[in-house]
Structures are given as structure tokens and as C-alpha cells.
Design a protein around this nucleic acid. Structure first.
Lengths: 155, 155
DNA sequence: ACTCGATTATCAAGTAACTTGTTTATGCGA
DNA sequence: TCGCATAAACAAGTTACTTGATAATCGAGT
């Protein structure tokens, strides 16, 4: 039986591996859709979030706002996303995923969705609650430290 | 109290959010190192895996092998990685992360590593075992389906 | 209410990185 | 040993990105 520190290490490593796997998965889908890496990232983000802003998408894709404009132009032309005015900020834009994107992606994710649903069925409700709590808090830590790294102003 | 299907949904959503957060985190580090998005992905992958091959890195970054050669040239010149001959395949190359990369990245990840360690301390060994099992099997499903999508040969 | 610095998104010019197609070397099954 | 598959690199051409500037709007402070 593993000691607690072994279990902790195991969890950390498995979380890192999952991060890698999720990138490989989204790349596989994007490649099949004929999208470049940047556009894949954007569509993936919007598939999960539903809608976003160019600023947020720039942060996720790692692009400047100038490149983000060009990326959104491409995706809008391909009818994979749509720009809408932001009712709360007249400078801003809301980017929404197009139904066409959902329909293109959906059949490719159904297989894994079903597998994950069956996997989760094998856990007790108590375990699932622990897993959900872990994932939420773990993610919160990652987000907080990402922001902290972005905001540092030293060399 | 949540029903099991609510808990399952919660876990799936949290896993998706974690995938996004891990990309934001690695982007933050890469941006601070002055790397472009592609090179960030490569260094991140090698930071976790230690070493890899150009073919595997091409798959992770979404590049062709030609672009991967160029990327490795850049990173080798910056002394962030090193190419070594693959003793098991004379056509192949092993790409190893350079100590310089580890030293550049380490101080930026220490904060979150500590936070995650403390978070994991708050779970029982039984919970940690469930979490580790979940992450490992969840990741395995993602990897299997990613491969499956890559290998399909229809339109 | 008004001013001014900050933020949002876009655009144009120049640069950097990527793709395609090819080449060399090697591996591996029939 | 023949022949096809795979690994990595290379060169030419194309695409996408960065930088710096602009216009519109926001919001904090006076």
C-alpha cells in the first residue's frame, strides 16, 4: 500500500499527464477539421465555454490582440464562430461558437464522453464528490498562480 | 445533496476547466521566458516527460516534422534542449530538456507546487487513491480516443 | 460633469514560423 | 534481400504572427 506522499506524487503526475492528453485530443480533432493549431485552440476553448471575448481568447491562445483579430476573421469566414456586440461594453465583442462547429466536433467527442461517463459510474458518490472537489480546487490554484506569473513585473 | 448524475457532470466540467487552466499556466511561463507558443509547448512537454523524440513532439505541438526540425534548431541554439542519438534506432533522435530550462522554469512553478501539495494534504489516503485512479483512467480514455481519431481514414 | 490614463479591438507593414514536397538513412516484414 | 514504412532534415513558397499605431469607449479621481 502506498504511503500518502506516494499517493500525492501519483496524483500530481497523473494530473500532468491529463494536461498533455487533453492537448493531444484537441489536436486530433482540429487536424481532422483542417484547422491550424491556433484555430484549434480557439474552437476548443469556445466548445467548452460557449462564448468568450477576443481578449480572453488571446490569453488562451497566447496571441497578441492583433493576431487574434486575424484568427477571428478566419474562423468567422469559415462560419465556425460569430462576433456579436458586447451589451455591457461598447468597445468589446462577444465571440460565440457557431452551431456548425458544434455539429462538426460533436461526433468526434461522443466516444470519449461515453467512456468517461461509464468510468464515472464505477465510482461511489462519495468518491465523485472528492474528485470534483479536488479538480475544482486544483484548477483554482493553477489559475491563481498563472495570473500571478502574468502580473509579475520583474525581469 | 447532488445526485450522482449531477456529480458526474460536475467532474466532467471541472476536468475541462483544468485542461484550460493548464494551458493558461504554461502560456504564462513561456511568455515570461520570451518563447513563442510552439516552443512553450515543447518545453512544457519536456519539462514533464524529461525526454522525447521529434515525432512525439510533432504530435504534441501539432507541427509537421519539417517544422519540428526548425523548432528544435531554435531551442537547441537557445540551449533549452539537446539532441542526442537514439541508441535503439539510428534514424532517430532523443530530445532532452537542458538543465538551463529546468532552472528557468523551476522558480515559477514552486508556488503552485506547494499550493497543490497542501491541497492534497487535506484529502484522506482513501480519497487520494480514488483521485489517482480516476485521473489515470480518465487520461487513458482520452489518449485512446485521441489515437482513434488520428487513425480514422474517412472524410 | 470632465479629464486623463487604461482598455478593447482593429489595421497595415514587416518578420517569423509553418507547410509541402523531397531527400537520406535506417528499420523491418515478406 | 527486396521493398515499403518510418525518422529526421532541408529548401522553396505560403501563411500566420508581431509590432506599432489608431479609434472608440470605459472608469477612476477631481
Amino acid at each position: 500500500m502506498d504511503s500518502k506522499s506516494d499517493l500525492k506524487r501519483h496524483v500530481i503526475l497523473a494530473a500532468q499527464e491529463y494536461g498533455i492528453a487533453s492537448v493531444l485530443f484537441r489536436n486530433a480533432i482540429g487536424h481532422r477539421l483542417g484547422l491550424n493549431i491556433t484555430d484549434i485552440g480557439c474552437v476548443n476553448f469556445l466548445f467548452i465555454k460557449g462564448s468568450s471575448t477576443p481578449t480572453e481568447l488571446a490569453r488562451y491562445t497566447g496571441l497578441t490582440t492583433g493576431s487574434t483579430t486575424a484568427m477571428l476573421d478566419r474562423l468567422e469566414k469559415a462560419e465556425l464562430i460569430a462576433r456579436k456586440p458586447n451589451p455591457r461594453d461598447r468597445r468589446g465583442v462577444i465571440v460565440e461558437i457557431d452551431q456548425r462547429s458544434r455539429e462538426a466536433v460533436a461526433p468526434m467527442v461522443q466516444g470519449v464522453q461515453r467512456a468517461q461517463s461509464e468510468l464515472l459510474d464505477s465510482f461511489s458518490e462519495k468518491d465523485l464528490a472528492a474528485i470534483a472537489s479536488f479538480l475544482t480546487r486544483f484548477t483554482e490554484n493553477v489559475n491563481r498562480h498563472a495570473r500571478s506569473i502574468e502580473k509579475r513585473h520583474d525581469g
